[in-house]
Structure formats: structure tokens, C-alpha cells
Design a protein around this nucleic acid. Structure first.
Lengths: 206, 206
DNA sequence: TAATTTTTGTACTGATTGGTAAAAAATTAA
DNA sequence: TTAATTTTTTACCAATCAGTACAAAAATTA
């Protein structure tokens, strides 16, 4: 029982003919575009440039591949989210989130929208656990924002009569709505208009 | 070539053993919960209480069944949307939309969320036309709201410096975000908090 | 070179997908 | 009663689904 991760290349044996990270990136693109259930194994294999046994040997199964692709998504296209919480004021936090989302959701280099929103929103029983995993990712993001806004209120950065929980839920809804708009064809500028509308009304804006 | 609709019961032949409207309602529930591609024909048949040949004879095929179910959705659970446009002020229009959505998206009598949002957001090639149909439904709703807000501005009900297009897109995003929140488990009260947050900041609120 | 280890390609599995052929059953019209 | 019409039931279709068995190939270690 070695503690070696399954991703670590062994020193003996035939070397892997593909790069796991770029293959995972390709898998992410397919899942992003088609969703967990809409992405078939032939779809994934073709995009990744490998065949099924290689996929299973390297990533486990379809579900594990999806979860690893989501992890990659959080660390790359969606990497703007949690750092935004470190902005000095609540206004700037929300501004960074909304503008980051506008850019990420409508980046021509990637599929439109957000894979955490559209990856498994409504699906059959076989996708239930993936759907639940994405729900939890969305909620985790909202909780982090709520806690940040509570801190802002304690610091006097948000008015005393503001409701951090309601505001976090509201911003969460706007972010998710922006993702839907992007999948419907909205451009980055379109989404920025939404962001600007939110920011103009931000309580105690500064 | 008779002009009789395929839904009209013929006077001769074996009578249909099920009610088309209630069967369509059941089909809508399945599509709502599982999405277009996640809903299998056995799923649909079981919920509708009929078998496949009856389904095909009565509704065409899976795609046509879905489109008819969506039509039913617009006329029933989502019937609040277009009438809301007839409210006298832009504030009341938006209030009715947001509160109607809060109620409809989290009604315990129905699956959570909005089937027009989650029915075919990301799917394989075989769902492309359905996905496009839903995109157009969403955009049509947004256009109607934009035109209503343009009228409100012309009537002096919205400030001259407001941007009806941006506001319509913004409200569209919030409505779609509320649908996502509902599928993630948000209650009607949770969604009402979002609605209230939007309304508190409505330009020239009245 | 020989033994070992791992990945690769091909071919397959059983289950499920959307959709249909054909005959039996139920009704109305003649 | 008989003919015509429509729905229902059962059984099937080819295609696709996720996943795998197996052997050839390619590398390292000894």
C-alpha cells in the first residue's frame, strides 16, 4: 500500500503517451459544453486524444473524471472567485466577482457559461451524486461570500441594516443568472452591463 | 386533408384510455426534474401511465412531447410572467415577476426550479434544437420586459438615466439565478429575500 | 538479453437508448 | 352483424451507453 497518488508517473513500465493535464483540460471542455450526462465516453476520448482503457486507467471512471475536471475548472477558469473575497471592501469584493464572472463566462477561448452551474443541473438518477456535488460547490461559494459580507458589516463597511445572508444569496443568484445568460449567447459586455447594474445599487457603495 | 388537430378525439375507433392533459402534466414533471435528455422514454411512460406506442401516437416523439410540455408549463406554473407586464408601474411589474418566480420555483407541489432554464442547458447534439428552443423562450421573455421598461421610461415611471435594456437583462439574470437556487434547495422564503433585495434598489422605486 | 511492469489498441460485454411492426381489442358506422 | 377505424399490447429493432478482457507494444530494471 504505497501512498503514491494514482496520478504520479511510475518509474518502470511503458510511459504514458499523453499529458494528463492537457487531457483533463480537453475533458473539461467537453463536460462544460455538453454537461456530465450529455458528454459520452467517445466524445471524451476523441477530445482527449486517448482511448477508453487509457481514460479509465488514468482517471478511474466517468464520474471521477468529471470531478477532476471540475477541480481543474475551479483552479483555472474560475480561479477569480475566492481571491475576490480578499478585496478590502464589500463593494470591491462584489465588483471583482461580477467582473470576473463576466469575463470567465463569456471568454471566447472556453465554452460559454459555468460548468458548475450547467454541468449537472437536471439529470437522471445516474447523475444524482454529481449534481449534488455541484450544488455543494455553489453553496460553499455563497457561504464564503456571506461570511465575507458579515465581516464587512462588522467592520462598518456595510450598513448596519444590510442583510449579509440576503445579499450573498442575491449575488449568488446574479452570478448563476449571468452563467445562464452566457450559455444563451450573451457577450462579455452584455454581462458587464448586468454587473454594473448590480454595483450601482450596492448598499453603502464605496 | 382535414384541419383537425391531432389532439382532437376522433368519433370512431377505440377510445383513448388516458387523458392527454394529465398525461402531459406528468411528462412535464419528469422533464422538469430530469431535463430533456435525462428523462428516458420508460421514465416518461411510467409517469404518464401509458406505453410507448401510445405516447408516440398521441404526442409525436420525445422532442415534440417536450415542446408540448413546455407549452403547458408556460400556461400553468409559469403563467405569472407575461401578465406581470401589465402592472401599472415598472416597480410593480418587477415585483410581480420576482415574487411570482419565488413562488413558482419553490412550489412544493412541483419540481424545484424552472424547466425553461434547466430543461436543456447543456446537452449532447441530439438535444441541440430543444436547447435552442429554450434559449429563445428565455430571450423572448427578456425582450418583452425590456419593451415594458422602455414604455415605463417614456411614461416617466423610470428615471431618464436608467437603461431599460440593462435592467431587463439584469432582471432576467436574477430570475434565472433564482431558478438555480431553487434547484439547489432554496425555499420560497429564501427566494423572496432575493426578490426583496432587488426591489429595495429599484431605480425610482414606487 | 531476459524478466518485469505499465500502457496501448482492438474487440467485446450487458444494459439502455429512442423508436416501431404487427396483431389484438374496443369502439362507431353501415 | 359486418366493415372500418383507432388504440393498446407485446415484442422487437438498430444504435449507443458506460465499462472491461486480453494481448500486443513499449519502456525500465536486472
Amino acid at each position: 500500500m504505497s501512498a503514491t497518488a494514482s496520478t504520479a508517473a511510475p518509474s518502470v513500465g511503458r510511459p504514458r503517451a499523453f499529458d494528463m493535464d492537457t487531457a483533463l483540460q480537453k475533458a473539461l471542455e467537453v463536460f462544460w459544453l455538453k454537461g456530465y450526462e450529455g458528454a459520452s465516453l467517445p466524445d471524451l476520448c476523441e477530445a482527449m486524444g486517448i482511448n477508453k482503457p487509457s481514460l479509465y486507467a488514468a482517471f478511474g471512471n466517468k464520474e471521477q473524471l468529471f470531478l477532476k475536471a471540475i477541480e481543474l475548472y475551479e483552479n483555472r477558469p474560475c480561479a477569480f472567485y475566492y481571491p475576490a473575497l480578499e478585496q478590502p471592501t464589500s463593494y470591491q469584493v462584489v465588483q471583482h466577482m461580477l467582473c470576473g464572472a463576466a469575463k470567465a463566462n463569456a471568454d471566447p477561448a472556453n465554452p460559454p457559461g459555468c460548468v458548475i452551474v450547467q454541468g449537472a443541473l437536471a439529470c437522471s438518477e445516474s447523475g444524482a451524486s454529481v449534481k449534488q456535488a455541484l450544488i455543494e460547490k455553489r453553496q460553499k461559494g455563497e457561504v464564503a461570500l456571506r461570511e465575507r459580507l458579515e465581516r464587512a458589516q462588522a467592520e462598518g463597511d456595510l450598513p448596519a441594516d444590510a442583510d449579509p445572508a440576503a445579499l450573498a444569496r442575491y449575488i449568488g443568484a446574479v452570478l448563476q443568472g449571468m452563467a445562464i445568460q452566457a450559455t444563451s449567447g450573451a457577450s462579455c459586455d452584455d454581462l458587464r452591463m448586468v454587473a454594473e447594474t448590480v454595483l450601482q445599487a450596492w448598499p453603502g457603495k464605496k
